[in-house]
Design a protein around this nucleic acid. Structure first.
Lengths: 352, 352
DNA sequence: CTGAAAGCGCTTACAG
DNA sequence: CTGAAAGCGCTTACAG
């Protein structure tokens, strides 16, 4: 139970060696104004000599609070998808609030551009130290982040990227690859002569980059292999269960050789119900670890879910900002999430 | 840039309200001897009133170092499996060393009981604050942990459990379920009439709980469904490639209807090579995200790998101890890792 | 059984 | 441009 011996490579030691006060050392460490080039150089040399690494514990204890803002979609009744990211943010929050970090959460409506703009303005007024956001509305997000750049506020994109707008980091799925993986699964669970059906279900599919990229990836898999597998597709824009069922019934009646359905988003549990009512037992692959889908998976009505840990995405987004703000450490510019395959027999162990 | 306002629910405030010194408050918080029941009670009431939560930053900064010891198998030439856990420990280390935590790493030889005993004695002499271990040798591990209990040193098991020996936590795979999941996959990628072959490859299979439990799970899947699928099995105890190849060749010649091979451990890449030399294209399922296996996966010689993030297992093991020692927080007694399915099309995104 | 002081390694005003 | 002091919220000896 000996007392810790004092550290001999801290600011004190640097100050002693440089014959200055620790205040001056602090100024150099943080690149603040008001140090003569001469003493600055002298101190920097010593810092390198000692291989100085700041004690983050002491740093966080002594310094002012760090504020991180998050801007993500509201949990809607259309989908509970955004529950997990919110939980992920909460987890990050509870881990780092002890380190003198505060997280302010903002939400926008995915069907309402203006809500995105309004919330982003609110955030800017608060001048946070960093921002995590889902840039669903590209033009508006570009305007927003332009202002961030101007104010020197770092920002991280999650779930979808704007490659042209340089961010601290993008954390999210690789959509093409996840569609490609679906193709891979299909090649295992169907015969070459079996046809498959792609289902895009959304009010405006054209604007849903997610859906388009996944379909591309899926088709890419078969194209790359010169496969002649027949791929049917329907775009369903009226998203009430009845309309969906009608459209599915029509296609299946027309194409009897369809053995597998691939739903390009989280709406797969609705399709599962349709198939049940139509009394068709086909293989069903879809996306996302959300409650409704898990229920269908358990019941055996969905065969495979492809998931990309949205909770962890958000958690990592916050942590990335924290690490950058506190440690000024290097940040991976793009972080693709793993592409997980979930079945009835491993969902119990999955952590979203 | 305002200065932080002082916290009004810290030890100081408690001391002020209780009319004692902060030293006494500290004694109560840590349940140390030497406080009269009266003042203890008084202080405890105030602690509850204020809903006091210690500032861990300050706590770690002021207090002595925490020492965690880890005891895991050496990376051997038999398998590179233990590389990942070692990396996981390193990652945890680099994250928490700033919090005044030191990790001492010890290793034993999986083929040498004595090395386990020797290392465990070394650890005990150092009296660490917590221990993470892989209890491969059950009797020896029980003895070791008995002493830990006596010395009041918490320990966490990883990779394999000793349910009868109460530990702070067990973090590892659910072996039965992972075999079960393999059965699930098989049901999708073969027809009912196709036969499958289980391959247990190890010098002494009887002692390898891992292998036995996975086989059980695999068979369980078919039993639970009343399936009549034919399941052949070979135990291969001579583990050089030549012997392995000979045994496989023999079985495949005898049973022409075998369409899929299930290897119950990380030796699956060796089997992949054998099949290649025998010029047999069968579906191959095995375990573990190790270099050799990934190569075979990429080449298309392995179809599915089942993985359980051994690196994260070790990372979480260390972090569990850290959280317990610093925050005295509640610990999950059993933490099963997710069971991941890896194919040629998603391994690039996997984080082991 | 209790208190007063020093210290952990930083940052933050303030003074000059 | 620089220094000296106070403080962040705890823990650790030491003294009585």
């Amino acid at each position: 139970m000996t007392k810790k011996e004092p550290r001999l490579s801290g600011v004190k030691e640097i100050a002693r060696r440089a014959n200055v006060s620790i205040g001056t050392v602090d100024r150099v460490i943080h690149n603040r104004y008001g140090v003569s080039p001469k003493t600055r150089d002298k101190i920097n040399v010593i810092i390198r000599e000692l291989d100085y690494e700041p004690n983050l514990l002491a740093r966080r204890l002594a310094s002012r609070v760090i504020r991180i803002a998050t801007l993500i979609p509201l949990v809607s009744d259309e989908t509970s998808f955004w529950e997990a990211p919110l939980l992920g943010i909460g987890q990050a929050e509870s881990e780092i609030k002890q380190y003198n970090v505060v997280i302010d959460k903002y939400f926008f409506d995915q069907n309402d551009k203006d809500s995105f703009v309004k919330q982003s303005q609110k955030i800017l007024r608060k001048k946070p130290d960093g921002i995590l956001m889902v840039p669903d509305f590209i033009q508006e997000a570009v305007k927003f982040t332009d202002k961030c750049k101007h104010l020197n506020i770092p920002y991280v994109f999650m779930d979808s990227d704007i490659p042209d707008q340089p961010s601290l980091s993008y954390i999210g799925p690789n959509l093409y690859s996840s569609g490609y993986l679906a193709g891979n699964l299909v090649s295992y669970v169907t015969r070459e002569k079996d046809a498959v059906l792609i289902l895009n279900i959304s009010k405006d599919i054209e604007k849903q980059n997610h859906i388009l990229r996944k379909e591309e990836g899926f088709r890419g898999y078969f194209k790359d292999r010169g496969s002649k597998k027949r791929i049917e597709k329907i775009d369903i824009k009226r998203v009430d269960p009845k309309s969906i069922e009608k459209e599915i019934a029509a296609v299946l009646t027309k194409h009897k050789d369809i053995k597998l359905l691939f739903v390009t988003n989280s709406r797969v549990s609705v399709v599962a119900s349709c198939l049940k009512r139509l009394d068709k037992k086909l293989i069903l692959i879809g996306y996302d670890f959300i409650r409704e889908n898990i229920e269908s998976l358990k019941a055996g009505d969905i065969d495979f879910l492809i998931c990309q840990k949205p909770g962890e995405q958000a958690y990592k987004g916050v942590m990335t900002l924290y690490k950058f703000l506190v440690q000024k450490s290097e940040i991976e510019q793009v972080l693709f999430m793993p592409i997980d395959i979930i079945t009835k027999e491993n969902y119990q162990f999955y952590r979203n």
